[in-house]
């Protein structure tokens, strides 16, 4: 079977600063891949492009295919990208749940891509879909919180709700953008364990960006390291060794002494909502 994710010569420029250089990556079905690298190395940018949440450069931007279908090429999203996103679960660092909706409603949103548009728009979820959402919640251990408002949950619980949303979505690929960066160690361990279980039991392909290399070594077979927008290492996670990591993070820190202190949100490119484009 062909690759689940295929990125070919991807280039992305923010203003005058190029974030990704001629990047090529291919992920096989059932893999669990860690994307590591220092802040600003381009790992989040890469992941956003794979889900079609960001658009590559117009000229020489390259292309991305997921599950054999094109997400974007040369700076243009595929017209069917919304249908394609239904197969791609995305986990955000800030969870991105709808705080005023209940936990169950948030998980049900995962069904939107797989049901008739009119029914989703009116919020008419049927019994089977509700059952699926409850099962997804049970799987992340939060079935008893189904009726609570999402904003009342702790960070770790919210992230598990977000994973339940991706499960309810029946995503074939899960992209997790620093899912544990804002969590305490215990919640982080739980979230990584759930992602690893989904990968092992359902055969779902998982790509997860991580700050902490020890988590990458513990939970992922393969690691891809980015440095300044280029792939610096691609191989077994177990073979990441100390010297290499010094090179990966150390040099970056010397180049840009402030980058480690800057708040993450400020560095992120502003996300326009422009619905008309996507």
């Amino acid at each position: 079977m062909s690759a689940v994710i295929r990125v070919e010569s991807l280039n992305k420029t923010f203003g005058r600063k190029q974030a990704l250089f001629d990047l090529a990556l291919s992920v096989e079905p059932g893999e669990m891949v860690a994307l590591i690298g220092a802040s600003g190395s381009g790992k989040s940018t890469l992941l956003r492009h794979v889900a079609g949440l960001a658009c590559c450069d117009r000229s020489g931007g390259g292309s991305i295919q997921v599950l054999g279908r094109e997400v974007q090429a040369a700076g243009r999203l595929n017209g069917e990208v919304r249908r394609l996103r239904a197969d791609i679960g995305y986990i955000f660092q800030q969870f991105n749940l709808v705080g005023r909706l209940s936990v169950l409603q948030n998980v049900l949103l995962g069904c939107l891509g797989r049901m008739p548009r009119w029914r989703g728009t009116l919020g008419l979820f049927n019994a089977e879909e509700k059952q699926r959402a409850l099962q997804a919640l049970a799987r992340v251990g939060l079935a008893d919180l189904a009726q609570q408002r999402a904003s009342t949950l702790s960070g770790g619980q919210q992230q598990r709700v977000a994973i339940a949303r991706a499960l309810c979505q029946r995503a074939k690929v899960i992209l997790a953008d620093e899912p544990i960066a804002s969590l305490d160690p215990e919640s982080a361990r739980k979230v990584m364990q759930i992602l690893a279980d989904i990968n092992r039991e359902d055969g779902t392909t998982v790509v997860v960006t991580l700050h902490q290399v020890d988590y990458a070594m513990r939970y992922c077979q393969r690691a891809v390291a980015l440095k300044a927008g280029r792939i610096h290492y691609d191989g077994a996670a177990a073979e990441l060794h100390a010297n290499f990591l010094n090179d990966l993070y150390g040099a970056e820190l010397l180049d840009e002494p402030q980058s480690a202190e800057k708040p993450r949100r400020a560095r992120k490119p502003k996300v326009p909502l422009a619905l008309a484009k996507a």
């Binding site: 889900a51 949440l53 919304r82 249908r83 394609l84 996103r85 239904a86 197969d87 791609i88 679960g89 995305y90 955000f92 800030q94 969870f95 991105n96 749940l97 709808v98 705080g99 909706l101 949103l109 995962g110 069904c111 939107l112 891509g113 797989r114 548009r117 989703g120 728009t121 919020g123 977000a162 949303r165 979505q169 996300v271 326009p272 909502l273 619905l275 008309a276 996507a278």
Partner: peptide
């Protein structure tokens, strides 16, 4: 906050659904 809207978008929702739920 654009976050929740993007969260809804990532599920494959339509533009109108992004507005309604996000």
């Amino acid at each position: 906050d654009p976050g929740p809207v993007e969260g809804v978008r990532a599920t494959g929702a339509s533009a109108l659904q992004e507005v309604i739920y996000g």
